[in-house]
Amino acid sequence: MAAVEVKNLVKKYGSMDAVKGISFSINEGEIFGLIGPNGAGKTTTLRVLSTLLSINSGTVTILGHDLSKQSGEIRKLISYLPEDAGAYKNLTGRAYLQFIANFFDQKEVPTIVKKGIEIADLGARIDDRVDTYSKGMMRRLLVGRALMTNPKLAILDEPTSGLDVINAQEIRKLVKSTAQKGTTVLLSSHNMLEVEYLCDRIALISDGKIVEEGKPKALMEKYKARNIEEVFIRTVHE
C-alpha cells in the first residue's frame, strides 16, 4: 500500500494557483524528495499533506485515510517539520519535548521524551531555555521533536535549511536512519547533494506542476546529467 497517494491536487490562494493538479505516490518506508525553485509549490504541498491547508480539488490519501475527511486520524500518524519552525521560548528543550509528547499516548511519554533528547543530542543544554539556543541547536531540537514520536510519515520542509555542514550532515543521517526503521519520509530541499544522498525517489516541481519524477540515478541517466542539479536545471529551465 502506498503511504501517500496524491491525485490531481489543486490548491489556490484566492485567484492564485499555487499547486496545479499534481499527482504522485510515496511507498511505505521510502524517502521521497520534492524539489523545485522558490515559489514552485513545495511548501504548499507539504502544508496540505500536513492537514494545515484545505484542498480545492483532487484527492489525497495518507496511510489509507482521506485527507479531506479524516484529518484528525492523519494527525495521529504524521509529524511535520516546517522550514522556519520555532519552539516556545520560555520552555527548556526538555520541557518543550515533554509538552509535545503529552499529546500522545500517556504511557509512552517518558520513552518519547527520551528518544527526543537522544535525537536532539544537545547534552546538558537540553535543560536550558530554548531562547538561548543557536539556530543549529534549535533545528536539532525540532528534528528531535518531529521524529521522537515514531511517526508513520515524517514531512520535513527543508530539514537542513540554514545549518552548517556538520549539523546538516548529522540531521541527514538521522533522517536516513529513521526511514530505515520504517518511517516514510517526504521532504523538500534546495540542496541537490542532500537530495541525491537521501532520497529514494524525487519529484521536480515547477510553477505548481510536477515536471519530472523518478529515482535520482534514473533521472541522471535520462538527462545524461552528472548530478541532480543538472537534471533540475534542465527540467526546470530548458
Partner: peptide, 14 residues
C-alpha cells in the same frame, strides 16, 4: 511570531 502555530496545528489535538 515564534513559528509554533503550524506545529501545534499538526499535533493530534482537536
Amino acid at each position: 511570531e515564534n513559528k509554533t502555530l503550524e506545529t501545534l496545528l499538526t499535533l493530534p489535538v482537536k
